[in-house]
Design a protein around this nucleic acid. Sequence first.
DNA 1: CGAAAACGGTATCAAAAGTTACACAACTCA
DNA 2: TGAGTTGTGTAACTTTTGATACCGTTTTCG
Lengths: 209, 209
Amino acid sequence: MDTIDLLAKLPGAFTESGLRQEMLTHGKFITVDKDDTIVREGQFLDFLPIVIKGEIRVFQQKEDREILLYYVREGQTCMMSLSAAYFSQTSTSYGVATKPSEIFVFPTRLVNDWQLKYSSWNAFLIQTFRSRYDELLDSFESVAFDPIDKRILTYLKNRSQKDHSSKIVISHQNLAYELGTTRVVISRILKSFEQQGKVKLFRGYIQLK
Amino acid sequence: MDTIDLLAKLPGAFTESGLRQEMLTHGKFITVDKDDTIVREGQFLDFLPIVIKGEIRVFQQKEDREILLYYVREGQTCMMSLSAAYFSQTSTSYGVATKPSEIFVFPTRLVNDWQLKYSSWNAFLIQTFRSRYDELLDSFESVAFDPIDKRILTYLKNRSQKDHSSKIVISHQNLAYELGTTRVVISRILKSFEQQGKVKLFRGYIQLK
DNA sequence: CGAAAACGGTATCAAAAGTTACACAACTCA
DNA sequence: TGAGTTGTGTAACTTTTGATACCGTTTTCG
Protein backbone atom coordinates (compact mmCIF):
# COMPACT_ATOMS: atom_id res chain seq x y z
CA MET A 1 0.00 0.00 0.00
CA ASP A 2 1.47 3.34 -0.92
CA THR A 3 1.38 6.57 0.98
CA ILE A 4 -1.56 8.06 -0.82
CA ASP A 5 -3.81 5.11 -0.07
CA LEU A 6 -2.80 5.13 3.53
CA LEU A 7 -3.37 8.82 3.97
CA ALA A 8 -6.85 8.43 2.63
CA LYS A 9 -7.58 5.91 5.32
CA LEU A 10 -6.67 8.04 8.26
CA PRO A 11 -9.60 9.40 10.20
CA GLY A 12 -10.88 12.73 8.96
CA ALA A 13 -10.44 14.19 12.41
CA PHE A 14 -6.77 14.80 11.75
CA THR A 15 -7.24 18.03 9.93
CA GLU A 16 -3.67 19.18 10.11
CA SER A 17 -1.62 17.97 7.21
CA GLY A 18 1.56 18.21 9.26
CA LEU A 19 0.09 15.69 11.65
CA ARG A 20 -0.94 13.32 8.90
CA GLN A 21 2.51 13.64 7.45
CA GLU A 22 4.15 12.80 10.75
CA MET A 23 1.89 9.84 11.20
CA LEU A 24 2.97 8.46 7.91
CA THR A 25 6.60 9.16 8.60
CA HIS A 26 6.74 7.61 12.05
CA GLY A 27 3.95 5.08 11.94
CA LYS A 28 3.95 1.48 10.93
CA PHE A 29 1.15 -0.34 9.25
CA ILE A 30 0.44 -3.86 10.49
CA THR A 31 -2.16 -6.50 9.84
CA VAL A 32 -3.46 -9.00 12.35
CA ASP A 33 -5.65 -12.07 12.12
CA LYS A 34 -8.88 -12.76 13.88
CA ASP A 35 -8.23 -13.71 17.53
CA ASP A 36 -4.72 -12.29 17.50
CA THR A 37 -3.82 -10.57 20.75
CA ILE A 38 -2.58 -7.02 20.20
CA VAL A 39 -2.10 -6.06 23.82
CA ARG A 40 -2.13 -8.14 26.96
CA GLU A 41 -2.33 -7.29 30.63
CA GLY A 42 0.99 -6.34 32.14
CA GLN A 43 2.49 -5.47 28.81
CA PHE A 44 4.52 -2.32 28.54
CA LEU A 45 3.17 -0.11 25.82
CA ASP A 46 5.68 1.43 23.47
CA PHE A 47 3.26 1.95 20.64
CA LEU A 48 -0.15 3.47 20.18
CA PRO A 49 -2.58 1.80 17.79
CA ILE A 50 -5.17 3.34 15.51
CA VAL A 51 -7.47 0.88 13.82
CA ILE A 52 -7.74 1.41 10.10
CA LYS A 53 -9.83 -1.61 9.25
CA GLY A 54 -11.42 -4.26 11.41
CA GLU A 55 -12.17 -4.28 15.11
CA ILE A 56 -10.35 -4.82 18.40
CA ARG A 57 -12.14 -6.08 21.46
CA VAL A 58 -10.74 -4.55 24.65
CA PHE A 59 -11.48 -6.27 27.93
CA GLN A 60 -10.20 -7.01 31.39
CA GLN A 61 -9.74 -10.45 32.82
CA LYS A 62 -10.70 -10.96 36.43
CA GLU A 63 -10.47 -14.11 38.54
CA ASP A 64 -13.47 -15.81 37.09
CA ARG A 65 -14.94 -13.41 34.59
CA GLU A 66 -14.25 -11.05 31.76
CA ILE A 67 -15.25 -7.38 31.56
CA LEU A 68 -15.82 -5.95 28.15
CA LEU A 69 -14.63 -2.35 28.03
CA TYR A 70 -15.21 -1.39 24.42
CA TYR A 71 -14.47 -2.15 20.81
CA VAL A 72 -11.91 -0.12 18.93
CA ARG A 73 -13.29 0.41 15.45
CA GLU A 74 -12.12 2.09 12.28
CA GLY A 75 -10.54 5.45 12.88
CA GLN A 76 -10.40 4.95 16.63
CA THR A 77 -7.61 4.46 19.09
CA CYS A 78 -7.50 2.51 22.32
CA MET A 79 -8.09 4.73 25.32
CA MET A 80 -6.54 2.28 27.74
CA SER A 81 -3.37 1.93 25.69
CA LEU A 82 -3.19 5.65 25.30
CA SER A 83 -3.28 6.50 28.97
CA ALA A 84 -1.11 3.56 29.95
CA ALA A 85 1.47 4.59 27.42
CA TYR A 86 1.27 8.23 28.38
CA PHE A 87 2.21 7.47 31.97
CA SER A 88 4.61 4.68 31.09
CA GLN A 89 2.45 2.13 32.81
CA THR A 90 1.73 -1.40 31.79
CA SER A 91 -1.60 -2.29 30.31
CA THR A 92 -4.41 -3.38 32.61
CA SER A 93 -6.44 -4.82 29.78
CA TYR A 94 -6.34 -7.09 26.78
CA GLY A 95 -6.91 -6.22 23.16
CA VAL A 96 -7.88 -8.99 20.76
CA ALA A 97 -8.91 -8.67 17.13
CA THR A 98 -12.45 -9.84 16.49
CA LYS A 99 -11.73 -10.09 12.77
CA PRO A 100 -8.78 -9.68 10.43
CA SER A 101 -7.70 -6.11 10.99
CA GLU A 102 -5.34 -3.43 9.80
CA ILE A 103 -3.74 -1.28 12.43
CA PHE A 104 -1.57 1.74 12.28
CA VAL A 105 0.92 1.92 15.13
CA PHE A 106 3.42 4.57 16.12
CA PRO A 107 5.80 5.21 19.00
CA THR A 108 4.06 6.54 22.07
CA ARG A 109 6.58 9.28 22.69
CA LEU A 110 4.91 11.04 19.77
CA VAL A 111 1.69 11.45 21.70
CA ASN A 112 3.26 14.06 23.87
CA ASP A 113 4.90 15.81 20.93
CA TRP A 114 1.67 15.94 19.01
CA GLN A 115 -0.26 17.29 21.94
CA LEU A 116 2.05 20.26 21.92
CA LYS A 117 1.83 20.75 18.16
CA TYR A 118 -1.56 19.79 16.81
CA SER A 119 -4.95 20.88 18.05
CA SER A 120 -6.71 18.22 16.05
CA TRP A 121 -4.73 15.56 17.88
CA ASN A 122 -5.83 16.98 21.20
CA ALA A 123 -9.41 17.07 20.03
CA PHE A 124 -9.08 13.44 18.98
CA LEU A 125 -7.79 12.47 22.41
CA ILE A 126 -10.46 14.28 24.33
CA GLN A 127 -13.10 12.92 22.03
CA THR A 128 -11.75 9.42 22.59
CA PHE A 129 -11.83 9.70 26.34
CA ARG A 130 -15.18 11.36 26.50
CA SER A 131 -16.97 8.99 24.20
CA ARG A 132 -15.62 5.94 26.01
CA TYR A 133 -16.82 7.45 29.23
CA ASP A 134 -20.27 8.07 27.80
CA GLU A 135 -20.42 4.52 26.51
CA LEU A 136 -19.51 3.11 29.86
CA LEU A 137 -21.99 5.37 31.57
CA ASP A 138 -24.72 4.01 29.33
CA SER A 139 -23.77 0.47 30.21
CA PHE A 140 -23.69 1.38 33.85
CA GLU A 141 -27.17 2.85 33.82
CA SER A 142 -28.47 -0.06 31.91
CA VAL A 143 -27.03 -2.60 34.32
CA ALA A 144 -28.10 -0.60 37.33
CA PHE A 145 -31.65 0.18 36.33
CA ASP A 146 -32.92 -1.90 33.45
CA PRO A 147 -34.28 -5.43 33.73
CA ILE A 148 -32.47 -8.00 31.67
CA ASP A 149 -35.11 -8.38 29.01
CA LYS A 150 -34.89 -4.70 28.20
CA ARG A 151 -31.11 -4.87 28.13
CA ILE A 152 -31.20 -7.73 25.69
CA LEU A 153 -33.58 -5.88 23.41
CA THR A 154 -31.48 -2.74 23.57
CA TYR A 155 -28.40 -4.75 22.73
CA LEU A 156 -30.06 -6.33 19.73
CA LYS A 157 -31.35 -3.02 18.44
CA ASN A 158 -27.98 -1.36 18.86
CA ARG A 159 -26.20 -4.15 17.06
CA SER A 160 -28.78 -4.09 14.32
CA GLN A 161 -28.32 -0.38 13.80
CA LYS A 162 -24.56 -0.52 13.93
CA ASP A 163 -24.31 -3.44 11.53
CA HIS A 164 -27.04 -2.14 9.24
CA SER A 165 -28.68 -5.54 9.46
CA SER A 166 -31.54 -7.09 11.35
CA LYS A 167 -29.59 -10.33 11.50
CA ILE A 168 -27.53 -10.33 14.68
CA VAL A 169 -24.84 -12.96 14.56
CA ILE A 170 -24.07 -14.06 18.09
CA SER A 171 -24.59 -17.16 20.21
CA HIS A 172 -26.70 -17.09 23.33
CA GLN A 173 -23.57 -17.85 25.32
CA ASN A 174 -21.68 -14.90 23.94
CA LEU A 175 -24.63 -12.63 24.39
CA ALA A 176 -24.65 -13.75 28.01
CA TYR A 177 -21.00 -12.76 28.31
CA GLU A 178 -21.66 -9.36 26.80
CA LEU A 179 -24.44 -8.65 29.26
CA GLY A 180 -22.82 -10.28 32.25
CA THR A 181 -25.36 -13.00 32.83
CA THR A 182 -25.77 -16.68 31.98
CA ARG A 183 -26.79 -18.57 28.89
CA VAL A 184 -29.94 -20.07 30.35
CA VAL A 185 -31.30 -16.66 31.20
CA ILE A 186 -30.63 -15.37 27.71
CA SER A 187 -32.21 -18.39 26.04
CA ARG A 188 -35.28 -18.08 28.24
CA ILE A 189 -35.86 -14.43 27.46
CA LEU A 190 -35.09 -14.73 23.77
CA LYS A 191 -37.62 -17.52 23.58
CA SER A 192 -40.26 -15.33 25.13
CA PHE A 193 -39.35 -12.58 22.67
CA GLU A 194 -39.89 -15.04 19.87
CA GLN A 195 -43.29 -15.95 21.23
CA GLN A 196 -44.14 -12.26 21.35
CA GLY A 197 -43.07 -12.04 17.73
CA LYS A 198 -40.21 -9.64 18.43
CA VAL A 199 -37.46 -11.88 17.06
CA LYS A 200 -36.93 -15.11 15.25
CA LEU A 201 -34.27 -17.46 16.57
CA PHE A 202 -31.76 -19.49 14.62
CA ARG A 203 -28.67 -21.38 15.46
CA GLY A 204 -25.90 -18.84 15.73
CA TYR A 205 -27.94 -15.74 15.01
CA ILE A 206 -31.05 -13.79 15.86
CA GLN A 207 -33.36 -12.12 13.40
CA LEU A 208 -34.82 -8.89 14.72
CA LYS A 209 -38.33 -8.14 13.53
CA MET B 1 -6.15 36.06 49.57
CA ASP B 2 -2.93 37.07 47.91
CA THR B 3 -1.09 35.46 45.06
CA ILE B 4 1.30 33.49 47.15
CA ASP B 5 -1.43 31.79 49.16
CA LEU B 6 -3.33 30.94 46.04
CA LEU B 7 -0.33 29.51 44.27
CA ALA B 8 0.32 27.27 47.19
CA LYS B 9 -3.14 25.85 46.84
CA LEU B 10 -2.89 24.81 43.23
CA PRO B 11 -2.44 21.11 42.68
CA GLY B 12 1.13 19.99 42.61
CA ALA B 13 0.61 18.43 39.23
CA PHE B 14 1.13 21.77 37.52
CA THR B 15 4.87 21.63 37.52
CA GLU B 16 5.42 24.37 35.01
CA SER B 17 5.65 27.75 36.63
CA GLY B 18 4.52 29.43 33.43
CA LEU B 19 1.28 27.51 33.68
CA ARG B 20 0.76 28.40 37.30
CA GLN B 21 1.45 32.00 36.44
CA GLU B 22 -1.12 31.97 33.64
CA MET B 23 -3.67 30.38 35.90
CA LEU B 24 -3.29 33.16 38.37
CA THR B 25 -3.38 35.81 35.70
CA HIS B 26 -6.47 34.55 33.91
CA GLY B 27 -8.32 32.70 36.61
CA LYS B 28 -10.87 33.89 39.08
CA PHE B 29 -11.33 32.65 42.56
CA ILE B 30 -14.88 32.11 43.75
CA THR B 31 -16.54 30.70 46.82
CA VAL B 32 -19.84 28.86 46.90
CA ASP B 33 -22.14 27.68 49.66
CA LYS B 34 -23.34 24.21 50.37
CA ASP B 35 -26.06 23.19 47.91
CA ASP B 36 -25.16 25.92 45.43
CA THR B 37 -25.42 24.79 41.84
CA ILE B 38 -22.23 25.44 39.90
CA VAL B 39 -23.27 23.93 36.60
CA ARG B 40 -26.66 22.79 35.38
CA GLU B 41 -27.79 20.70 32.45
CA GLY B 42 -28.07 22.62 29.22
CA GLN B 43 -25.75 25.33 30.42
CA PHE B 44 -23.12 26.57 28.05
CA LEU B 45 -19.70 26.31 29.61
CA ASP B 46 -17.44 29.31 29.27
CA PHE B 47 -15.33 28.50 32.27
CA LEU B 48 -13.47 25.53 33.61
CA PRO B 49 -13.45 24.91 37.36
CA ILE B 50 -10.74 23.51 39.56
CA VAL B 51 -11.75 22.82 43.11
CA ILE B 52 -9.38 24.30 45.67
CA LYS B 53 -11.32 23.51 48.79
CA GLY B 54 -14.55 21.59 49.36
CA GLU B 55 -16.39 19.19 47.10
CA ILE B 56 -18.70 19.27 44.09
CA ARG B 57 -21.14 16.49 43.41
CA VAL B 58 -21.59 15.85 39.69
CA PHE B 59 -24.66 13.96 38.55
CA GLN B 60 -27.18 13.54 35.79
CA GLN B 61 -30.89 13.89 36.21
CA LYS B 62 -33.06 11.41 34.36
CA GLU B 63 -36.85 11.19 34.26
CA ASP B 64 -37.28 9.62 37.65
CA ARG B 65 -33.83 9.14 39.01
CA GLU B 66 -30.44 10.64 39.53
CA ILE B 67 -27.11 9.19 38.43
CA LEU B 68 -24.09 10.09 40.46
CA LEU B 69 -21.05 10.47 38.21
CA TYR B 70 -18.35 11.54 40.61
CA TYR B 71 -17.24 14.05 43.18
CA VAL B 72 -14.78 16.76 42.24
CA ARG B 73 -12.45 17.16 45.16
CA GLU B 74 -9.50 19.36 46.02
CA GLY B 75 -7.08 19.80 43.17
CA GLN B 76 -9.42 18.18 40.67
CA THR B 77 -11.33 19.48 37.72
CA CYS B 78 -14.66 18.38 36.31
CA MET B 79 -14.23 16.03 33.39
CA MET B 80 -17.71 16.65 32.04
CA SER B 81 -17.27 20.41 32.07
CA LEU B 82 -13.91 20.05 30.47
CA SER B 83 -15.04 18.05 27.48
CA ALA B 84 -18.27 19.99 27.07
CA ALA B 85 -16.36 23.23 27.08
CA TYR B 86 -13.71 21.90 24.75
CA PHE B 87 -16.27 21.10 22.07
CA SER B 88 -18.44 24.12 22.83
CA GLN B 89 -21.27 21.92 23.92
CA THR B 90 -23.72 22.48 26.72
CA SER B 91 -23.41 20.52 29.91
CA THR B 92 -25.23 17.21 30.23
CA SER B 93 -24.84 17.12 33.97
CA TYR B 94 -25.26 19.08 37.14
CA GLY B 95 -22.62 20.16 39.60
CA VAL B 96 -23.68 21.00 43.14
CA ALA B 97 -21.47 21.83 46.10
CA THR B 98 -21.81 19.34 48.94
CA LYS B 99 -20.23 21.80 51.33
CA PRO B 100 -18.94 25.37 51.30
CA SER B 101 -16.26 25.34 48.64
CA GLU B 102 -13.60 27.41 47.00
CA ILE B 103 -13.25 27.11 43.26
CA PHE B 104 -10.79 28.46 40.80
CA VAL B 105 -12.34 29.17 37.40
CA PHE B 106 -10.82 30.33 34.15
CA PRO B 107 -11.94 30.85 30.57
CA THR B 108 -12.21 27.61 28.63
CA ARG B 109 -10.40 28.94 25.60
CA LEU B 110 -7.26 28.59 27.67
CA VAL B 111 -7.58 24.83 27.75
CA ASN B 112 -6.59 24.62 24.15
CA ASP B 113 -3.76 27.11 24.56
CA TRP B 114 -2.36 25.25 27.52
CA GLN B 115 -2.51 21.93 25.76
CA LEU B 116 -0.17 23.35 23.18
CA LYS B 117 2.16 24.89 25.73
CA TYR B 118 2.33 22.82 28.88
CA SER B 119 2.98 19.12 29.21
CA SER B 120 1.89 19.11 32.80
CA TRP B 121 -1.50 20.42 31.76
CA ASN B 122 -1.88 17.60 29.27
CA ALA B 123 -0.87 15.09 31.89
CA PHE B 124 -3.45 16.57 34.22
CA LEU B 125 -6.17 16.20 31.59
CA ILE B 126 -5.34 12.63 30.71
CA GLN B 127 -5.07 11.76 34.37
CA THR B 128 -8.47 13.31 34.95
CA PHE B 129 -10.14 11.36 32.18
CA ARG B 130 -8.47 8.12 32.98
CA SER B 131 -9.17 8.16 36.67
CA ARG B 132 -12.82 9.03 36.16
CA TYR B 133 -13.05 6.16 33.74
CA ASP B 134 -11.46 3.79 36.22
CA GLU B 135 -13.82 4.95 38.94
CA LEU B 136 -16.83 4.39 36.76
CA LEU B 137 -15.53 1.01 35.72
CA ASP B 138 -15.28 0.04 39.36
CA SER B 139 -18.86 1.08 39.96
CA PHE B 140 -19.93 -0.79 36.89
CA GLU B 141 -18.30 -4.00 37.98
CA SER B 142 -19.70 -3.63 41.41
CA VAL B 143 -23.23 -3.11 40.16
CA ALA B 144 -22.93 -5.87 37.61
CA PHE B 145 -21.37 -8.55 39.76
CA ASP B 146 -21.57 -7.82 43.45
CA PRO B 147 -24.58 -8.54 45.63
CA ILE B 148 -26.04 -5.53 47.39
CA ASP B 149 -24.80 -6.40 50.84
CA LYS B 150 -21.24 -6.42 49.58
CA ARG B 151 -21.77 -3.13 47.77
CA ILE B 152 -23.07 -1.51 50.91
CA LEU B 153 -20.11 -2.69 52.91
CA THR B 154 -17.70 -1.50 50.24
CA TYR B 155 -19.39 1.86 50.20
CA LEU B 156 -19.12 2.22 53.96
CA LYS B 157 -15.49 1.22 54.00
CA ASN B 158 -14.63 3.60 51.19
CA ARG B 159 -16.40 6.47 52.87
CA SER B 160 -14.74 5.66 56.14
CA GLN B 161 -11.32 5.68 54.55
CA LYS B 162 -11.92 8.83 52.58
CA ASP B 163 -13.34 10.74 55.54
CA HIS B 164 -10.79 9.35 57.98
CA SER B 165 -13.66 8.43 60.25
CA SER B 166 -15.59 5.30 61.11
CA LYS B 167 -18.71 7.41 61.51
CA ILE B 168 -20.49 7.58 58.16
CA VAL B 169 -23.03 10.35 58.10
CA ILE B 170 -25.77 9.39 55.68
CA SER B 171 -29.42 8.39 55.89
CA HIS B 172 -30.60 5.02 54.69
CA GLN B 173 -32.58 6.80 52.00
CA ASN B 174 -29.58 8.64 50.62
CA LEU B 175 -27.48 5.53 50.79
CA ALA B 176 -30.18 3.88 48.70
CA TYR B 177 -29.88 6.67 46.14
CA GLU B 178 -26.13 6.30 45.98
CA LEU B 179 -26.38 2.60 45.32
CA GLY B 180 -29.41 2.75 43.10
CA THR B 181 -31.75 0.73 45.26
CA THR B 182 -34.49 1.38 47.80
CA ARG B 183 -34.55 2.38 51.43
CA VAL B 184 -36.16 -0.81 52.68
CA VAL B 185 -33.46 -2.93 51.18
CA ILE B 186 -30.74 -0.81 52.74
CA SER B 187 -32.36 -0.84 56.18
CA ARG B 188 -32.80 -4.58 56.02
CA ILE B 189 -29.20 -5.26 55.17
CA LEU B 190 -27.77 -2.72 57.58
CA LYS B 191 -29.80 -4.33 60.32
CA SER B 192 -28.33 -7.69 59.52
CA PHE B 193 -24.87 -6.13 59.54
CA GLU B 194 -25.60 -4.78 62.99
CA GLN B 195 -26.64 -8.21 64.19
CA GLN B 196 -23.40 -9.57 62.81
CA GLY B 197 -21.58 -6.87 64.77
CA LYS B 198 -20.18 -5.19 61.67
CA VAL B 199 -21.77 -1.82 62.30
CA LYS B 200 -23.78 0.08 64.85
CA LEU B 201 -26.78 2.05 63.62
CA PHE B 202 -27.90 5.50 64.69
CA ARG B 203 -30.33 8.02 63.38
CA GLY B 204 -28.56 9.80 60.55
CA TYR B 205 -25.29 7.93 60.68
CA ILE B 206 -23.63 4.56 60.76
CA GLN B 207 -20.73 3.56 62.94
CA LEU B 208 -18.39 1.12 61.22
CA LYS B 209 -16.73 -1.40 63.51
C1' DC C 1 -16.79 -41.26 9.53
C1' DG C 2 -17.26 -40.61 14.44
C1' DA C 3 -16.23 -38.22 18.67
C1' DA C 4 -16.18 -33.96 20.76
C1' DA C 5 -17.56 -29.41 21.07
C1' DA C 6 -20.80 -25.83 20.47
C1' DC C 7 -25.50 -24.54 20.44
C1' DG C 8 -29.99 -24.16 22.17
C1' DG C 9 -34.62 -25.71 24.77
C1' DT C 10 -36.71 -26.44 29.01
C1' DA C 11 -37.97 -27.77 33.77
C1' DT C 12 -37.26 -27.22 38.61
C1' DC C 13 -35.57 -25.05 42.44
C1' DA C 14 -33.31 -21.39 45.25
C1' DA C 15 -31.83 -16.93 46.27
C1' DA C 16 -31.76 -12.08 45.85
C1' DA C 17 -33.97 -8.02 45.54
C1' DG C 18 -37.89 -5.02 45.01
C1' DT C 19 -42.82 -3.68 46.65
C1' DT C 20 -46.24 -2.40 49.75
C1' DA C 21 -47.87 -1.35 53.96
C1' DC C 22 -47.79 0.21 58.54
C1' DA C 23 -45.85 1.74 62.96
C1' DC C 24 -43.29 4.74 65.72
C1' DA C 25 -39.43 7.81 67.07
C1' DA C 26 -36.85 11.95 66.44
C1' DC C 27 -36.27 16.25 64.66
C1' DT C 28 -37.65 20.98 62.95
C1' DC C 29 -39.83 24.98 62.67
C1' DA C 30 -43.73 28.10 62.61
C1' DT D 1 -46.09 23.26 71.57
C1' DG D 2 -47.78 20.59 68.11
C1' DA D 3 -48.07 19.53 63.15
C1' DG D 4 -45.42 18.11 59.55
C1' DT D 5 -41.24 16.03 57.94
C1' DT D 6 -37.56 12.86 58.07
C1' DG D 7 -35.57 8.66 59.63
C1' DT D 8 -35.87 3.83 60.89
C1' DG D 9 -37.81 -1.11 61.86
C1' DT D 10 -40.20 -4.89 60.19
C1' DA D 11 -43.56 -8.17 58.17
C1' DA D 12 -45.53 -10.32 54.15
C1' DC D 13 -45.46 -10.94 49.57
C1' DT D 14 -44.01 -10.91 44.51
C1' DT D 15 -40.88 -10.70 40.92
C1' DT D 16 -36.63 -11.30 38.88
C1' DT D 17 -32.73 -13.61 38.25
C1' DG D 18 -29.50 -17.21 38.87
C1' DA D 19 -28.18 -22.32 39.48
C1' DT D 20 -28.48 -26.97 38.19
C1' DA D 21 -29.58 -30.60 35.45
C1' DC D 22 -30.67 -32.99 31.41
C1' DC D 23 -31.94 -33.30 26.68
C1' DG D 24 -31.37 -33.29 21.60
C1' DT D 25 -29.34 -31.05 17.46
C1' DT D 26 -25.79 -29.11 14.67
C1' DT D 27 -21.15 -28.21 13.57
C1' DT D 28 -16.28 -29.05 13.57
C1' DC D 29 -12.31 -31.48 12.97
C1' DG D 30 -8.94 -35.26 13.42
